[in-house]
């Protein structure tokens, strides 16, 4: 029974990630080998230099630190602000709550089509053009509705006993939030943090637009995007670039995963 389950999970999983394995294999092929070897995973000869070339061409070296800083700061602010708002919406009634919920719902539905010009004008008015803060601010600002929505749903589903116990002990609004609620929300924080990190890591449009005057502030997403929009694309290098940009996120995922598991364990003990 156990073995069958693992065989199923592994077999299905292999098919599931086959495109990535194929990209990994292709990243080490020669262009000709790539065209001739069909869906096979194993390169005829290993071309490790593809990685060095992709690294250079997409300017990954230059952009790595920018991307890391922007992504991490975006995650921290997004989590803090959305957890606060989600908590307030889930656990408290106040005048204006219904309106706020309606507006949140509506912003999901209304398309965010051609909004880059107004956003650009705001960032310009704030004097933040060509700084990493502009990218962070716009990314955080744009992601709050989603995060708040998620936290709200999460808090609503959470049992209230702990909170009530703490309230009986005389805990105030802030103590309750920072000492009781926030630690309990680690699974959702890890989940949302992961998604925010991924989104920020892969984003290319905002970093491109808000660092126009200072290309040295660009991120990996911009470098990778430039790669995909070339004319005579070198597919093997593209695969190498994709693998490079993928690696850090996979690491983050594995770490965040463990965190989720720990968080549950902690919650159960408490």
């Amino acid at each position: 029974m156990k073995v069958t389950r693992h065989i199923l999970l592994l077999g299905f999983g292999l098919a599931y990630v086959y495109p990535f394995l194929w990209a990994l294999g292709s990243s080490l092929k020669t262009p000709m080998d790539f065209l001739d070897s069909g869906l096979s995973l194993i390169p005829a000869e290993m071309r490790w230099e593809n990685y060095a070339k992709a690294w250079d061409q997409a300017s990954f070296g230059t952009y790595f630190v920018n991307t890391l800083v922007i992504s991490l700061v975006t995650v921290v602010f997004t989590l803090l602000l959305t957890a606060m708002a989600g908590y307030a919406l889930a656990r408290h009634t106040f005048p204006g709550r219904k309106t706020l919920l309606f507006v949140i719902g509506a912003t999901f539905l209304l398309p965010h089509g051609y909004t880059i010009i107004p956003v650009f004008d705001i960032v310009k008015a704030l004097g933040l053009l060509d700084t990493i803060w502009s990218v962070i601010l716009v990314q955080v600002g744009g992601g709050l509705v989603f995060g708040t929505f998620m936290f709200m749903a999460y808090f609503q589903a959470m049992p209230k006993e702990l909170e009530e116990a703490a309230r009986v002990d005389g805990a105030g609004y802030n103590t309750l939030f920072f000492r009781v609620i926030l630690p309990l929300s680690r699974p959702m924080a890890a989940t949302l943090g992961l998604f925010t990190f991924i989104g920020s890591w892969n984003n290319f449009f905002l970093p491109l637009v808000f660092t126009l005057g200072k290309p040295e502030l660009r991120t990996l997403g911009v470098g990778l995007y430039a790669f995909t929009s070339q004319t005579s694309t070198n597919w093997t290098l593209l695969c190498a670039a994709a693998i490079i940009s993928l690696a850090p996120i996979v690491v983050v995922f594995v770490v965040a995963q463990r965190y989720v598991v720990d968080a549950i364990a902690g919650a159960v003990k408490a």
Binding site: F120, D121, K124, D130, L208, V209, L212, G213, S229
Partner: peptide, 14 residues
Amino acid sequence: DLEKLLDLAWRGGN
């Protein structure tokens, strides 16, 4: 993107 980016660059004054 060139056209879009040029428009924004003029908007941003850079």
